[in-house]
């Protein structure tokens, strides 16, 4: 394949990574922004989303099973996160250091419980609809510009659906935060917990729902990607690492920064993985994090702590 079509293919792959990453990282960023909790177990909620999607599609076959999984997996993962918040994080008074240790514990509990029940196999989930589509390329030949259909340049309907769905969910999340009263209450809690309490905001309930929403976003991202990736009990590690990279580069707690960084990291991961190696992509992303931490610790879009 020529360089041009090859780059386009890599960009498309990167866009899928970016879309899923943006959803996952938005959940992590939301939890950190509002609750100041660094949720190490975030990747496990992602994994749970994929595993639950497998379970639901086993119970109910066909496209309806998948549609049900889209609804049930985020809801169950979210409910579990709410329970974890009320039973664990709340009892630690949301202390920043102790919640890190607690969520590390939660990570292993979720992972091992999945291993004990679901098992060590990677299992596929079939997309509700899919088809390959070939993509055209413009080439300058002897008789001027013409459209060609290079062999191997193509994508699937499902990949485009994943990108579209992620954009739609993120737009809905933005509308929720900016336009609804619940979103306003969450932003107020994020800005100043104590003052929000003084104005009658039930901060503990806001925290529980935020933690649930963050986990549900990760689970939803996993349900979208699982037809491409397969469900496995260790699949949470990569999304966790990449989410942290994205959230640090974008600025902890800044949703727009998270989205921009997700596109940046997702695309570069896709392109570098195709042309060089996935390891190099991770090395460069981690190097970028180091540079951001040294030269702009608040992240690209974050505000400097007062």
């Amino acid at each position: 394949m020529e360089f041009g079509p090859h780059l386009m293919l890599a960009t498309l792959e990167g866009a899928v990574t970016a879309a899923v990453l943006a959803l996952t990282a938005a959940g992590l960023s939301l939890v950190f922004g509002v609750m100041r909790v660094v949720n190490i177990a975030h990747g496990e909620f992602f994994m749970l989303g994929a595993v639950l999607a497998w379970g639901v599609t086993q119970a109910v076959a066909g496209p309806w099973g998948y549609a049900l999984a889209l609804l049930v997996a985020p809801l169950l993962a979210g409910a579990l996160a709410v329970a974890a918040d009320v039973t664990i994080l709340k009892r630690l008074s949301y202390d920043p250091e102790r919640t890190i240790v607690a969520t590390i514990g939660l990570l292993y509990i979720l992972q091992q419980l999945t291993l004990m029940t679901y098992g060590p196999e990677a299992r596929p989930v079939v997309a509700p609809f899919d088809a390959r589509i070939a993509l055209p390329w413009v080439e300058h030949g002897a008789e001027g510009w013409r459209l060609t259909w290079p062999w191997g340049l193509g994508t699937t309907v499902w990949k485009l659906t994943v990108i579209g769905a992620a954009v739609a969910v993120l737009a809905a999340l933005w509308l929720f935060m900016a336009r609804t009263r619940a979103g306003l209450v969450m932003r107020a809690t994020q800005a100043d917990r104590e003052m929000a309490t003084a104005f009658g905001v039930p901060v503990e309930r806001v925290y529980a729902l935020t933690f649930g929403l963050g986990a549900a976003l990760a689970a939803l991202a996993a349900v979208l990607i699982v037809p491409i990736q397969q469900a496995h009990y260790l699949m949470g590690a990569d999304p966790l690492l990449l989410s942290f990279i994205v959230v640090i580069i974008g600025g902890l707690g800044s949703l727009p920064g998270t989205l921009v960084a997700a596109v940046l990291i997702g695309l570069s991961d896709g392109i570098i993985s195709v042309f060089f190696s996935p390891t190099l992509a991770k090395i460069l992303a981690t190097l970028l994090v180091a540079l951001v931490l040294v030269f702009r610790p608040q992240g690209l879009f974050g505000k400097r702590a007062a």
Partner: peptide
């Protein structure tokens, strides 16, 4: 004691809700 990052109307909305 206001939320400096929110708009004037949002501040009052929080108090009135």
């Amino acid at each position: 004691s206001i939320f400096p990052g929110l708009t004037v109307a949002e501040n009052v909305t929080l108090a009135a809700r």
